[in-house]
Each structure stands twice: as structure tokens, then as C-alpha cells.
């Protein structure tokens, strides 16, 4: 096939945050160093990535072991603010995709115009029949979907072929 590698990452720490983005942004910055991302973008600092999920939702990825402690820290800093912090590290599966033609492979199953995607854009979209999100990371791509459909996603990615392969 091609030289694309598809790997399932071990559990990734994930903290879901709901609330007013500027208040969330301040405390996340203080705890992780990640700046508040612009609409649809992500920012990274010190092994953390902060993803813009919607106008009142952020997703912070971190070391899985540290997730509960970070979530507690964020929760206490947000006390008194209408905000929700949830450790949802088990809810999703993250894939790492690397190699030439990943965009073309993903375009088998996602209605996404990759040429128009910003370098730090997080694209939440439909991957064949399930929701998924992708963003660029370390020269490759990160893809996440819900845990229960990880095998389906894996099957989809392995069945997909980039144009020309």
C-alpha cells in the first residue's frame, strides 16, 4: 500500500471544559501554559494541547496519569464560576497518522477540504458514519473518535487508500 502508518495511541489524558471561554482560557493557561485557542484552532505547551471544540467548550489533552490532578486543579480554580470540568480520558481513542498521503487517505471518509485547513485547525467532522476530529501534530495527524467505535475507525482507516496508492 503506501508508507502511511496508522497507530492507536495509548490512553490520552483528556479534560473537557465547558463555560465561558475567556474564563476557561485564563485558568487553563495558568495550569498548563496553553493559550486560549482561536475559533476552531488548537494551542500547545509543555506536552499539553488545548483544542477549541465549540463556542463554550475546550478539550485539554495531557498525560493520562496527570489528568485527574489537573482536572481537580482546574475545578478548584474555577470554583464560583459557572463552568464544568470533566475528566473524560477514557471516552475517546486517539490515532496517530503519519506519512505521505494521509490527507488523501482521510479524504476517503471525511468531507474536509484539507487544502483549506489552517495549520493549527481542529476539524470536527464526520468520518464515514461516526463523528471524529483531526488536527496536525508533530509532522503528522492526530485523529480522535469515541472509544466504542475505535475498531470501526481503525477498520475504516485501513480500508481507505490515498489516491494513487
Amino acid at each position: 500500500m503506501s508508507d502511511i502508518s496508522i497507530s492507536r495511541l495509548p490512553i490520552t489524558g483528556m479534560i473537557g471544559l465547558r463555560g465561558d471561554l475567556s474564563s476557561l482560557g485564563k485558568v487553563v493557561k495558568a495550569v498548563t501554559g496553553c493559550a486560549l485557542p482561536d475559533q476552531r484552532m488548537c494551542t500547545s505547551a509543555d506536552g499539553h494541547t488545548l483544542l477549541w471544540m465549540s463556542r463554550d467548550e475546550l478539550l485539554l489533552t495531557c498525560n493520562a496519569e496527570a489528568a485527574e490532578a489537573i482536572a481537580s486543579d482546574l475545578r478548584s480554580r474555577l470554583s464560583g464560576v459557572f463552568a464544568t470540568v470533566a475528566n473524560i480520558s477514557s471516552a475517546r481513542q486517539v490515532f496517530e497518522l503519519k506519512g505521505q498521503g494521509v490527507e488523501s487517505l482521510l479524504a476517503n471518509v471525511m468531507p474536509v477540504d484539507f487544502a483549506r485547513l489552517d495549520a493549527s485547525e481542529v476539524r470536527r467532522t464526520r468520518m464515514a458514519q461516526v463523528p471524529a476530529a483531526i488536527w496536525r501534530h508533530d509532522g503528522g495527524w492526530r485523529l480522535m473518535c469515541f472509544r466504542s467505535v475505535a475498531d470501526y475507525a481503525d477498520g475504516l482507516l485501513r480500508a481507505a487508500r490515498p489516491v494513487g496508492a
Binding site: N108, Q129, A160
Partner: peptide, 16 residues
């Protein structure tokens, strides 16, 4: 149908 056949005809959700 494209890729939607066999094992990936539709998403099969699995519990842990």
C-alpha cells in the same frame, strides 16, 4: 456503498 461493507458496513459499538 464505497467502504461501507463487511465489517465496516456500519459502526459497531463495543463496550470496554
Amino acid at each position: 456503498a464505497g467502504e461501507a461493507r463487511g465489517d465496516i458496513f456500519q459502526p459497531l459499538r463495543k463496550t470496554p
